[in-house]
Design a protein around this nucleic acid. Sequence first.
DNA 1: TGACTTATCGAACGAACGTTCGGTAGTTCA
DNA 2: TGAACTACCGAACGTTCGTTCGATAAGTCA
Lengths: 223, 223
Amino acid sequence: MPPTSVETRTAAPLPGRKPRALNDNRYDRRLAEVLSHAAHIFCAKGYEGASMRDLSRATGMSLAGLYHYCESKEELLYLIQKHTFRTIIESLRERLESSHGPEERIRIFIENHLAYSLANKDAMKVLVHEDETLKNEHGSEVRAIKREYYRICFDLLEDFQRAKGIQFSGRLAVLSLFGMINWIYTWHNPRVDAGAAAMARQMGDIYLHGLLKAGKAPRKGAR
Amino acid sequence: MPPTSVETRTAAPLPGRKPRALNDNRYDRRLAEVLSHAAHIFCAKGYEGASMRDLSRATGMSLAGLYHYCESKEELLYLIQKHTFRTIIESLRERLESSHGPEERIRIFIENHLAYSLANKDAMKVLVHEDETLKNEHGSEVRAIKREYYRICFDLLEDFQRAKGIQFSGRLAVLSLFGMINWIYTWHNPRVDAGAAAMARQMGDIYLHGLLKAGKAPRKGAR
DNA sequence: TGACTTATCGAACGAACGTTCGGTAGTTCA
DNA sequence: TGAACTACCGAACGTTCGTTCGATAAGTCA
């Protein structure tokens, strides 16, 4: 096992001298296939409960063949989580660029998160459910991206407070919101429940009106 | 393996003719110890990631000795989840008995759930995180208790709607609330965050004010 | 063509898993 | 006292796990 970093290994399979675009594309495409199947299986059976043999069956590739695309089972989880987080943040940053008012920006945050969640249920569940699974370097790297995402939301909420002249605990507000929108994967049924846009509006209504009213009345008498 | 049902097995170790209270107490107390350690380990490593050898080490009991108190690892998870749910519901029913107004009753629901969550973090995380782990009879039994709990909350919210003359999707409201309060185990830090009572008040403020305002304005123009 | 690299495989490795078996002290009770 | 039962144990069973090894077709390029 040569000490190639994951970073280089993902960009180019081996540090050899012929990094042909055609070959790289094929490798990357196949890796993406493997990761997609892995997300599906990790989602269905949990990371610990899923075996490389399950993944071998799902991809139609041999057990040994899988290790051409990853160094370990753990790296698969890491790649899934990193890619999922990065994609959500990238999409959010794009949507936030055409700047709106502070309330609208929070609605954009909710909408973006929900839309991605419902369009990529497997990956999202793996991201949320296996939150504490990764250890060491992979774990702290993913945790850093998570903090980045948390920070974006926290800042949006601070702007909101300033604009509306209200006050509440930013920490509690962020984590309550995350609770609402991250819980969805446990219950959402596309045959029963609304789509991302409608659900984002309803949840945004409850959440934002709640913040406004609760933030305006810092002490309301009762006990 | 005799076909003794779990029910009888839990009540009396063996269907023999001498169910002495003293012996039963000792057995039950020891079983409770095993379950407490199991909850701690399942919480820390996940159900699949935890091994009976981990539990053997934690309890100081031999691997084989554990099977004097359970039929399988799966039964341990089942017993933990059933007991946790039953305790929460029982405590909730008691608190709701001295009947209050519809808003206060929802606040009682939140307070009860949060207080139990923070006082029994391990069991609560195992309940939430291993929600889909149990299959077959054990799984459907726990799922039935969960529906019962869901139903209580749903009914409280319907009373609230009637009393306030407002309208919202009960399903979305219940599951948003569950999201907020079940998410807590992922972030609560007793050295940083408020206790159960204060947190229940803050979350109740956000949630209930949100429902009130959002429910009163069924259509608010914007797209 | 022939050297090289990539993509893939069957077979195996040692370790860890949940569970069971056959026992043995200690307690209970007729 | 002695039969019955409880509470436990060491050692093993068969299975499954993540991973590795050595090999081989297929594709690439001088």
